[in-house]
C-alpha cells in the first residue's frame, strides 16, 4: 500500500513539475468561461448564456479534448520508463507489478482529476457569479454531474493509455496507437453507428441503439450531460437519440466507471505477462 502511494505521489509531482496539471486546468477554465460568455454569439449577442446551453456546448467540446489530453498525459507511462531503463530497476524493488501500475495510474488520475475539478470548478464559480444560472441547486447538480462525468471520461482514456503503454516496446508506437484510439472513439465509432442507422433505414430498434452507445465512453459522457437537460436536446447531435432517459444518470456513470476499470484490468494482466 505504501509503495502505491509513493509511486502515485511521484507521478503527481511530476505532473505538477512539468506544468501538465497547470496547463490542463487553465485550458478547461478558459474553455468553460469562454463558451459561457460567447456561447450566445451565434444568436447575435454576447454575455453569459443559460447554463444548459453552456454545458451542452462544453460537453461537445470536452468530448474531443479530454480523451486527447488523457492519452497524451499517460501514453508513455510504462513504455517510457521501459525505454529509459528505470522500469527494469523499479521491478527489482520490493513491490509487485500490480502496485507499480496502480500507483502510476492513481498519480495520473489525480493530475487529471484535480485539473478537471479546479478548471471547471473555477469556471462554474465565474458563471455563477456573473451569469444567469436560474435555480442554484440545479446548477450545482448539473455542474457536479458534468465534472464527475468528465473525470470518469478522462480516467477511462488514461486507462486506455495504460493498456497501450504496457503492450508496446517503443514510445513512438504508443503515441501512434493512442492517436488511432482517440480517432476511433471520438469520430469513427459515431460515424459507423450513423452508417448502421442509415444502412438499415432505421430498423435497428431504439433499445439496441441505446446499448450500442454504451460501447463508447465518449457517447456515454455525452448522454449523461444531455439527459440532464431535456430542454437542450435540440442542440445535441447523434447522442440525443439516447437522451430519452433510457438510462438513469447513475447507471451511465456506472458504465463510465466500467470503462475505467476494464482497460485498466486488461493493462494489469498484460503488464504481469510482459517480460522486463
Amino acid at each position: 500500500m505504501k509503495s502505491i502511494l509513493i509511486v502515485a505521489g511521484k507521478e503527481f509531482r511530476d505532473g505538477l513539475r512539468n506544468r501538465w496539471a497547470f496547463a490542463i486546468t487553465v485550458v478547461f477554465a478558459l474553455l468553460a468561461v469562454g463558451l459561457a460568455y460567447f456561447g450566445a454569439a451565434a444568436s447575435g449577442q454576447v454575455g453569459f448564456t443559460g447554463v444548459a446551453t453552456t454545458i451542452v456546448s462544453l460537453s461537445s467540446l470536452a468530448v474531443f479534448l479530454l480523451p486527447l489530453i488523457a492519452l497524451m498525459l499517460a501514453y508513455d507511462s510504462v513504455v517510457g520508463e521501459a525505454q529509459q531503463g528505470t522500469l527494469l530497476l523499479l521491478l527489482t524493488y520490493p513491490m509487485s507489478r500490480l502496485q507499480l501500475l496502480v500507483g502510476k495510474f492513481l498519480g495520473h488520475a489525480a493530475i487529471l482529476g484535480v485539473s478537471t475539478l479546479i478548471g471547471f470548478g473555477v469556471a462554474g464559480a465565474v458563471i455563477a457569479a456573473f451569469g444567469d444560472i436560474g435555480e442554484f441547486s440545479e446548477f450545482l447538480l448539473a455542474l457536479g454531474l458534468f465534472i464527475v462525468s468528465a473525470m470518469l471520461l478522462g480516467w477511462a482514456f488514461v486507462a486506455f493509455a495504460y493498456l497501450i503503454s504496457v503492450s508496446v516496446a517503443e514510445k513512438s508506437r504508443a503515441a501512434g496507437i493512442a492517436l488511432v484510439v482517440w480517432f476511433f472513439f471520438v469520430l469513427v465509432f459515431d460515424l459507423a453507428l450513423l452508417g448502421l442507422l442509415v444502412g438499415t433505414s432505421g430498423t435497428v430498434s431504439e433499445s439496441v441503439f441505446h446499448y450500442l452507445l454504451l460501447l463508447n465512453p465518449t457517447d456515454i459522457f455525452r448522454i449523461v450531460n444531455l439527459t440532464f437537460f431535456e430542454a437542450a436536446r435540440t442542440h445535441a447531435g447523434l447522442a440525443s437519440i439516447g437522451a430519452d432517459a433510457a438510462f438513469h444518470p447513475l447507471v451511465l456513470l456506472g458504465a463510465l466507471l466500467a470503462w475505467v476499470i476494464v482497460p485498466l484490468v486488461a493493462a494489469m494482466v498484460l503488464f504481469r505477462r510482459r517480460e522486463a
Binding site: Q84, G85, T86, L88, P94
Partner: peptide
C-alpha cells in the same frame, strides 16, 4: 510473486540506465 520481500536484500545496477532527467 511472494518473493518480493526478497528484493529488500538485492541491489542492482542495470547497464545503460538513465534516470528521471527532470
Amino acid at each position: 510473486v511472494e518473493s518480493s520481500h526478497l528484493r529488500l536484500k538485492l541491489g542492482y545496477l542495470p547497464e545503460n540506465v538513465s534516470f528521471y532527467d527532470q
